[in-house]
Design a protein around this nucleic acid. Structure first.
Length: 313
DNA sequence: CTCCAGGACACTT
DNA sequence: AAGTGTCATGGA
């Protein structure tokens, strides 16, 4: 049974809810159905974030920090607080696209989380061609089935949660077993097991890919060399799991907003390799290339919420 | 029954 | 190299 520790976040300038529940992680949820309280797992630790007032949060966690400073460093890293929000969109963006700016303004506090690379890799391999709700369910199955279980005493009641399964664990299971966690898709289960094996054996070194000095194209090629990983999933892993904020994944929603908001007609044509790269090139002229993916995630979420009115997260 | 969901890949030109 | 069709599965 793990112990709990309490820390405080004071005056944080970030949209915590939006960051946790905008489809970049599927490991966070409302706690006890409270809109002000979120819980999730980072590594082997449970985190419960409770919004007190405005930008103040109480954090209850199984992770013991040696001091307050270490806690804030951890939070700052996870929520990318080191990234200046003013750098995300180029100067003049709000004047050039006032209509879009009005829609995304409530979401400018959303941060791209610095998540674990392997988790992100598996998560987005699962996500292919599925809706958010189903993805969430699959990841939940996956962690419950193969992740190490922990129990913690919360107000006298035992609360269980699971770590994300390790590469070694996933590498060693049978496809027809994992299939339950991949919407009964055996091909996808096989691909995930292969990728996990590749990570477990060191053939795919995710630490390497995290190196900011490695060209983005090289990182992407290393990832998409694996079956089941194309441009889009590779870019998602780069952005959400390898902390490469320039990586700009293009999916069905992104295509829609590129066409509607930025009048890029080619966004609606078939997404061939050439067209995919062309669209990224176009985007690099609209957004700040260094943070294209970061800004793109804000646009993505705004589009889903404000235009499509989707409630899944 | 049709269409959609944070696509990938083999197979023609 | 580039474009086109196919695959896969559950949910609305």
């Amino acid at each position: 049974m793990k112990a709990l520790y309490t820390y405080f976040i004071e005056n944080i300038s970030a949209d915590i809810r939006g960051s946790l529940l905008s489809g970049q992680s599927f490991r966070w949820n409302y706690y006890q159905d409270s809109e002000q309280k979120y819980f999730g797992v980072i590594g082997d630790d449970l985190f419960i974030l409770e919004n007190n007032e405005d930008d103040w949060y109480t954090v209850t966690t199984t992770k013991k920090f040696s001091c307050d400073e270490e806690f804030h460093e951890f939070i700052g890293f996870y929520f990318s607080l080191d990234i200046n929000p003013d750098d995300l969109f180029p100067a003049g963006f709000s004047e050039q696209y006032p209509g879009i700016w009005r829609l995304i303004k409530p979401y400018l506090g959303i941060k791209v989380l610095r998540q674990n690379a392997f988790e992100t890799l598996v998560t987005f391999m699962c996500a292919q061609g599925l809706g958010m709700n189903i993805i969430r369910r699959q990841i939940s199955y996956l962690t419950r089935e193969y992740g190490k279980e922990h129990t913690v005493d919360i107000a006298g009641k035992p609360f269980t949660y699971n770590s994300f399964p390790s590469p070694e664990t996933l590498a060693g299971i049978a496809p027809d077993s994992l299939q339950l966690c991949t919407n009964n898709n055996c091909i996808r289960a096989t691909n995930i097991i292969k990728a996990a094996y590749s990570v477990a054996t060191g053939q795919l070194d995710l630490e390497d890919l995290q190196d900011p000095d490695m060209p983005l194209e090289t990182s992407r090629e290393r990832l998409s060399a694996h079956s089941g990983i194309g441009n889009k999933i590779a870019d998602c892993v780069l952005l959400f799991g390898l902390h490469r904020f320039s990586a700009f994944p293009i999916d069905t929603h992104v295509r829609q907003y590129l066409a509607t908001w930025f009048s890029i007609d080619k966004a609606l044509q078939s997404l061939t390799q050439k067209n995919y790269l062309f669209l990224q090139e176009e985007v690099s002229r609209i957004l700040n290339p260094e943070f294209a993916g970061f800004a793109g995630h804000i646009l993505f979420h705004s589009w889903r919420k404000e235009v499509k009115h989707l409630t899944s997260f």
